[in-house]
Design a protein around this nucleic acid. Structure first.
Length: 636
DNA sequence: ATTCAATGTCATCTG
DNA sequence: CTCAGATGACATTGA
């Protein structure tokens, strides 16, 4: 509750600042005495209550989270702050009255309804004691408050009454409140015309000033120019450099008038809907987190929980409910997942072994899938499958396997060290993570011969992949024909030391050695070709994506260029018009008007404006230089 | 019969 | 120099 009070208080202060910025005088002292100041959904800039309270107090500290820079709440915050800055910098007071009116219509609160709600709220005895005093005190302060208070109450789209409580009634009353809001606003317009007049007068003054600033300068005598005109003309001093530099601003200016027109309404409508719902839901989530943290000790209707639910239901109309509920659902999911994570971390030791097995299986699957993306692993796995998937060869291999084993035995009797060195290596070393659980348990694998082991692997893979048996490759047939106890796959994948030992100690003929070397080379090259093609395809896909992004960038640059050209031409026309206007009022030493075709205005950096005779050579050179530049631009 | 994509193979280069 | 890998070019194969 302390946070809430501080939140409201800070919000009130910020909103007071906001009101003062738009010309409304607010007596702050009268509000500060009441804790339940309106919950302000607007932001007052860097010191906004929106920043201070929700994120730092609740997220960073209470919930232990850190706000991500791309957090949607932050997006909303910065967006709203930007809008507010635009409103400040707008300098177009001509729109102020309408906006303020819209603000009032939307916001001006129903003090009565609020008060009624506040009095209705305390059905919960726990909150009643806490809230009623504050509300009464606040209502006392509000009673007879002027325009400023109405505004501030207004902005409490999430009203403090909600913070205290009852949601169902709140929901049902929302529509009525809105209607009453309009009525009360009208009443207040009647009762407080001075406030509105103050706004309109100030805005009218600003408008007048703007009109003066935007109008053409008064008739000139000589070269004495008014400061504004000098400023304006000085802007043309560095014409080419200024225009591109301010293109972004120009774009904003050209594209934003609509948003300016509705900026304050947006500040109410949009913030009252989506943004408000977002903030309300986020707060609800934040409060929910706090309430969950304290749920064990607090009663079910703890103030925080009620506040969260209040804020949640506060979202008002159906659309709000949809938005807020969905978003809140997201937050709740987030909270639920956090809770689950905590439980998992705490109960890690009690996890069901079956679940661990499943997880292991998933991990293995994932590992194998990942291995597909790898170079050697993918090729190796595929190589394992390809020779093993030929049932015919395995039928032969079965018979051959026994023969091979006998041969191996004989070999081992010949050179035990050599055979041992062969069999120290096996594909298991490469695929231990995959195959370790498949063959070792089988009785066939008890024989320590690599051929038997490989036969077991083949059978294992065959049982999994009997659907489409593949024929043995030519090299596989050749190796089998040689009667070696190794498959082509083994020859390809065994370490080079083992392969060299195999060549040396098998008493192979020269043609056999060449064949085995070719088999090994072809096998490795086959895998290398597969990897190479895969990389090539990946590179093509990446380049296609890059091309698309570059095309998008190119389109954006073209649009920006068109925009710049339009702005440049518009500024040039404005400059010409202004020059003509000036030359109409400028007289030479004989009192004759100057011909704008023969003279031009030159604006120096210090603000001085000089009339210079226009020379054809300069204009030609300038044109020539421009054409050269354009040609240069076109070349690349 | 032709086309085309996938795959295998060879030659060559590089580390 | 050998080996492993990468890659272009060509051949083969199957749909």
């Amino acid at each position: 509750m302390h946070h809430i009070k501080k939140y409201f208080t800070e919000g009130l202060i910020q909103f007071t600042i906001l009101l003062s910025l738009i010309g409304v005088r607010v007596d702050v002292d009268t509000y500060l005495s009441g804790y339940f100041s309106p919950l302000i959904e607007t932001d007052g800039g860097p010191s906004s209550a929106f920043i201070q309270t929700p994120f730092h107090h609740y997220r960073d500290t209470a919930a232990g989270h850190h706000v991500h820079p791309k957090c949607p709440e932050l997006d909303y915050f910065f967006t709203s702050r930007r809008l507010l800055n635009e409103v400040r910098a707008l300098g177009s007071p001509a729109r102020f009255p309408t906006r303020v009116s819209a603000w009032l219509v939307h916001l001006v609160p129903d003090e009565g309804s609020d008060g009624d709600e506040l009095h209705e709220l305390p059905e919960d005895p726990d909150n009643q004691e806490v809230n009623t005093e504050n509300h009464r005190e606040e209502n006392d302060h509000r009673a007879g408050e002027g325009f400023g208070l109405s505004l501030s109450q207004d902005c409490t789209v999430s009203r403090p009454c909600c913070a205290s409580g009852e949601l169902s009634k709140e929901e049902t009353l929302l529509n009525e409140e809105e209607e009453e809001d309009v009525k009360d606003e009208k009443k207040q317009e009647q009762t407080n015309p001075s406030s509105l007049n103050q706004l309109t007068q100030s805005s009218a003054l600003e408008q007048e000033d703007l009109v003066v600033s935007g109008s053409l300068p008064p008739p000139l005598s000589g070269l004495e120019l008014p400061p504004r005109l000098q400023d304006f003309l000085s802007d043309f001093e560095e014409f080419d450099s200024i225009v591109p530099q301010h293109m972004s601003d120009l774009e904003a200016d050209l594209s934003n008038p609509i948003s300016y027109d509705v900026s304050l309404q947006d500040a109410m409508v949009t913030r009252g809907d989506s943004a408000n719902c977002r903030s309300a839901s986020s707060r609800a989530q934040l409060f929910r987190l706090e309430s969950t943290n304290s749920s064990h000790s607090d009663p079910p209707h703890s103030s925080a929980g009620i506040l969260s639910s209040s804020l949640f239901c506060l979202s008002g109309n159906s659309s709000r409910n949809e938005t807020s509920s969905s978003q809140l659902g997201g937050y709740l999911d987030e909270a639920v997942f956090e809770h689950i994570n905590m439980l998992d971390l705490c109960n890690l030791g009690t996890i069901d072994p079956q679940m661990l097995d499943d997880m292991q299986g998933d991990m293995d699957t994932q590992w194998m899938e990942d291995s597909d993306s790898g170079l050697s692993l993918e090729s190796s796995s595929r190589s394992v499958a390809s020779p093993s998937s030929s049932s015919d060869s395995f039928g032969e291999d079965e018979s051959g396997a026994t023969g091979c084993s006998s041969e191996v035995e004989s070999l081992s009797s010949k050179g035990g060290a050599c055979a041992a060195s062969y069999y120290d290596w096996s594909p298991v070393d490469l695929h231990e993570n995959i195959w370790h659980d498949h063959t070792y348990s089988s009785t066939q694998a008890h024989n320590s011969t690599s051929s038997n082991w490989f036969t077991a692997i083949k059978q294992e893979v065959m049982s999994e992949d009997e659907a489409e048996p593949e024929e043995m490759s030519r090299d596989e047939h050749r190796v089998q024909a040689m009667g070696l106890p190794f498959s082509a796959f083994q020859i390809v994948n065994m370490p080079v030391e083992n392969f060299l030992e195999l060549l040396d100690r098998q008493n192979l003929s020269g043609s056999d050695v060449t064949l085995l070397r070719d088999v090994r080379r072809r096998g490795k090259n086959k895998l290398a070709a597969q990897n190479c093609r895969k990389r090539k395809l990946d590179a093509i896909v990446g380049l296609q994506g890059e091309v698309e992004s570059l095309m998008v960038q190119r389109d954006a640059l073209l649009r920006q260029r068109d925009h710049t050209a339009k702005a440049l031409s518009a500024a040039a026309e404005q400059f010409e018009a202004l020059s003509r206007t000036m030359f109409n009022h400028i007289r030479d030493e004989y009192g004759h008007p100057l011909n704008a075709e023969h003279y031009t205005l030159h604006c120096s950096a210090n603000g001085r404006v000089m009339v210079q005779p226009r020379t054809n050579t300069t204009s030609r050179t300038m044109k020539g230089s421009k054409t050269v530049k354009r040609k240069k631009d076109k070349k690349p």
